[in-house]
Computed example of a mutant assay.
Amino acid sequence: MHVLITVVGKRTEHWTDLFDVLCEQPDVTLTVLAADVSPVTRRELARLTGRHRRLRYHVVPHLLGESLTGHMASVLFRLPGHHDVTNARPDILHVIGEAAYLTTWQALRLRQRCWAGVPTTLYAAQNVVTRFPVPFPRIERQSYLSVDHAFPITPEALKVLRVKGYRGPATIVPLGVDTRVFRPLTTDAAMRPFTVGFVGRFEPHKGVADLLRAAELIDCDVSLVGDGSLNGEIERAAARRPGRVHRHGWAGHAELPLLLNRMDVLAMPSVEVVQRNTLPWIGIPLREQFGRVLVEAMACGVPVVGSDVGEIPHVVGDAGLVFPAGDVPALAARLARLRDDPSLAGRLANQGLRRADAEFDWRRIAGTLCATWRGLQSPTRPFRTPPAEAGHSTREAIS
């Protein structure tokens, strides 16, 4: 089964774990078409091709891009008319990108032009019903008519798909973690102060400032992994509390599991904001769609604390504590509770380990994806006629 996957955006490193696991399936040959990805993603893709003979990847140039517009929906593949990716017909086309993305439109156009009839599946993470400016609504509608199966990452993402008009089959498939890499490690926990950690972008909507204030209230150490516009605020906090605020740059798989294991709790104190970097007169609510680092921490046996924004409570489940977003005293109280009650921290850590293995292990997720893809290859499956070219009317036909 030859699967072609398209993926774009700077924060795509975690998808390489899924690609790795998919290539371990004995009947899967994988081609990855990527654009506007990070250097870390490029390195990981190159490393994987050294491990798997049945993996090929193409990082192609792009037009526009996330760094210019602030949104991945604007990325465009710059794919020549004759390219290696078009030569081999895939059995499945899987698009990692929302229905309204320009690259999703390009992938579906490529299928229509080069591989008519190839079953297509779509990742979906939107947990807010967002009305995009022209031409994105038309692209979104055409995508919903063309896709044979959707993979929303949460129940809320499935609800948004239905509200926005997708009527096809769907299976909830969460983001995952490689539990062979992210696992409990022996560390010197007894020799260090209680440490709360954060992994992600140092941006206002991630609640980094709230975390720094909460840590100061209970006088605990902070370990921050990532980068962003709040670097200055973090440096000022470190100056106020010498030796208590520790900052690390972006960490790959070789380093992140160890950094997580050196935390006593991982916090995701996100707040909801309105994003206006696409068009200034259009506000797009921005709330956490998943919180992948939560499951990475769970897999390492680290209890988690998260705000009640977006999908964080759904992902945390019974493996951590939730607090009202923006409520610094409440966040401090949750952290202090885990510091002062080792039995509670241990119980949440064990529940997180079970949750990571049962629900979020990439191997389980890959099995679900492959089972769906094999079913779509069945000669008896309904055929969905692809929509007409942009500018023409579209109708869904099932015969």
Rank of each mutant, 00 (worst) to 15 (best):
D210L: 13
R337K: 10
V129T: 10
I92D: 03
A99L: 06
W362Q: 01
V8K: 10
P204N: 02
H314M: 05
P90R: 08
C220H: 04
T86Y: 14
E255F: 06
S399C: 02
F19D: 02
L122M: 14
V328F: 04
R183L: 08
D84C: 13
P342R: 09
K206I: 03
V295R: 10
Q106I: 04
L79A: 05
A330D: 13
H52F: 09
D20F: 13
N277S: 08
A297P: 00
G346T: 11
A214F: 04
S146N: 12
G226R: 15
S223E: 14
A88S: 13
R364P: 00
A330R: 09
L212A: 11
G375M: 05
R113C: 04
V59W: 06
S307Q: 11
L68H: 08
G317V: 03
I172L: 05
L286N: 01
G70A: 01
R339W: 14
L185P: 00
F198H: 14
P26E: 08
R244T: 09
G226W: 03
F132R: 11
P26V: 03
L33M: 10
L256H: 02
G310E: 00
H246V: 03
L93V: 12
R47P: 05
T86W: 10
A150E: 11
I398W: 13
L93A: 10
L93Y: 06
H2R: 15
H392I: 05
R131G: 12
R201L: 08
P379F: 03
G168I: 15
N350H: 13
E359D: 14
F136L: 12
T120L: 10
A157N: 09
S143K: 01
P169V: 04
D318F: 00
Y123D: 13
E44W: 03
S223W: 03
V295M: 00
L376A: 08
G346P: 04
P90S: 03
I312A: 02
G306L: 05
A390K: 15
T380H: 10
R167V: 06
P387M: 11
G249Y: 01
H314Y: 06
V181W: 05
Y144L: 06
V59P: 06
P155E: 07
E272Y: 03
A319F: 05
A330C: 09
R287K: 11
A299W: 07
G320N: 01
A46L: 14
D318V: 12
H149Q: 12
D210Y: 09
G168V: 13
V295G: 06
T29P: 03
L369D: 04
A356T: 15
